[in-house]
Design a protein around this nucleic acid. Structure first.
Length: 256
DNA sequence: ATGGCAATGTTTCATTGA
C-alpha cells in the first residue's frame, strides 16, 4: 500500500495538479490538508472519475481535510475530528483503508510563541495524543499522516539558528510532537537513510524553494506493526516545481 | 524591525499561513 500526505493549500486551485499527481504517483491513500472548501464544493466527481473515493471534513477559507482512497483499497468507518475535543476548525479525518487505520491531520500553525493560537496548538496536540493512544489500542496497523506544523529536529530546519525558539521549532512544540512517538509511533521518513536538508515546505517568498530554505513539517507516523511493513518513505519535490504550486510537497510511504 | 508570496472572502484590503 502506498500512503501519501499533501497539504494542497486549496483543493480548488490545486485540483489539476492533484489529478496529474495521482495518475503519476498512483497512491492507494492520500491525506489532504488545507482544502479550504466545504463538502458541497469538494470536487468529488472529478476524483471519483480518477478512481478515488473521499472522506471529507471541510471548511470554507481555512483548514479542511480529506482522505482519498482508491476504489480497490476501500474507505471504511470514516470519522471526523478528535472525539471529546470541541473544535470548530476542521483538522482531522480518519478512515480504514486496506486494513490500515489512517488518521489525516492538519495540526495548528501556532502563529507565534506565546500567542492564543500557540496555546491552542499545544492543547490540540495533547488532545491528539489522547485520541491516538486510544486508536492504537483498537488498530495495531495505524498511520498518522499530515501537516504537523512542527520541525522535529534541527536537521529538519534549513537554518536552525535563524529559527531558534520560533513557532514550529520551539521546545514545547517539539515535546508535543515527540509525545506522539512516545505512544510507539515512528516517523516513517527517519526509518531510512535520507538526503541531508530534506524538507517538505518552502516559503513562497524570497525564492525559498530555489534556495532549499525549507522545513520538514509534513510527516507520516506509523505504528510499530506498520513500521515493520514500511519499505520506503520519501518527499516528492516535483509538484513544488510546477507553476502556481502548493508551498508543501507530498510525502509518500510504501507499506508492504 | 519588517516584508517578502499566496489563497480566500465579497475584496478593493484584511486575515491567515509557516
Amino acid at each position: 500500500m502506498r500512503l501519501a500526505t499533501w497539504n494542497v493549500n486549496s483543493i480548488k486551485v490545486r485540483l489539476p495538479q492533484l489529478l496529474d499527481w495521482l495518475a503519476a504517483a498512483k497512491p492507494d491513500a492520500v491525506c489532504l490538508q488545507e482544502i479550504k472548501t466545504e463538502e458541497p464544493k469538494f470536487p468529488r466527481a472529478e476524483l471519483e472519475a480518477a478512481g478515488y473515493r473521499a472522506a471529507i471534513s471541510g471548511q470554507k477559507t481555512y483548514n479542511g481535510v480529506a482522505l482519498l482512497a482508491s476504489a480497490a483499497a476501500g474507505l471504511e468507518d470514516a470519522r471526523a475530528g478528535i472525539p471529546g475535543f470541541d473544535d470548530e476548525q476542521k483538522r482531522v479525518i480518519a478512515a480504514t483503508v486496506s486494513g490500515v487505520r489512517v488518521v489525516c491531520v492538519y495540526c495548528p500553525n501556532g502563529q507565534a510563541v506565546g500567542s492564543d493560537k500557540y496555546e491552542y496548538k499545544l492543547r490540540w496536540f495533547a488532545a491528539l495524543k489522547g485520541y491516538l493512544a486510544a486508536e492504537l489500542e483498537r488498530h495495531p496497523a495505524l498511520a498518522v499522516a499530515g501537516d504537523f506544523n512542527v520541525a522535529p529536529e534541527d536537521r529538519d530546519v534549513h537554518d536552525p539558528e535563524a529559527w531558534e525558539g520560533q513557532v514550529h521549532v520551539s521546545p514545547p512544540e517539539r515535546e508535543a510532537w515527540r509525545a506522539l512517538l512516545g505512544l510507539g509511533l515512528k516517523d516513517a521518513f527517519r526509518l531510512f537513510e535520507q538526503p541531508e536538508k530534506s524538507f517538505s515546505w518552502w516559503d513562497y517568498r524570497m525564492m525559498a524553494f530555489r534556495r532549499n530554505a525549507g522545513l520538514r513539517i509534513d510527516q507520516i507516523l506509523v505504528s510499530a506493526e506498520l513500521a515493520k511493513r514500511c519499505r520506503a518513505c520519501s518527499i516528492d519535490k516535483a509538484p513544488r516545481r510546477l507553476e502556481r504550486p502548493s508551498d508543501h510537497a507530498p510525502v509518500v510511504a510504501e507499506l508492504a
